[in-house]
Amino acid sequence: MRYFVTIRGKTVSVEVGTGEVRVGDETVSVDLAGIRGTDMSTLLMDGTSYRVVARRDGGCWVVDVGGCHEVAEVIDERTAVIREMTGDPGPSNGARTIRAPMPGLVVRVEVDEADRVEPGQGLVIIEAMKMENELRAEASAWVERIHVSRGDAVEKGQLLIDLAPLSDA
């Protein structure tokens, strides 16, 4: 069975066989065993030992990689083919929206709707754990819609601002 695994925007094809996998165009011997009652597994890959901590979360896997928590999306070959035929880019389309990276309090919104923002420009300041964190624009864009105002308590992942690429305006 062939899977396409996407982590941090990079997709790798992994074909799962018995006791071995084909990663890209390389075949490696693998053995994965889970530790009951935990999210911990041990992976032996060509003899090299890795600890893997992963849990399923809403159709994706949240996997701990060298201390980093990564969201991994997995689709099988059939789904990949369908996506290619229909031109559906899949669920990841986050570049135009600014979301709260953590729960906190909106201290200040630094832009107005219809403002043009440049890369690195501050958009909104959120206070969490008594520290102020400024969220900045990653690229030039128009501020399309602002969903929060000063004093709002926001949850992690909550939509704060919609940005529109310059060409759309």
Binding site: V5, V16, L43, M45, V63, G66, G67, E70
Partner: peptide, 19 residues
Amino acid sequence: GPADEDLRAAFVAVALLEH
């Protein structure tokens, strides 16, 4: 982010877990 070698293990592990 994580080192390439750790990422490679993650790709493989996730495919095996999904399977």
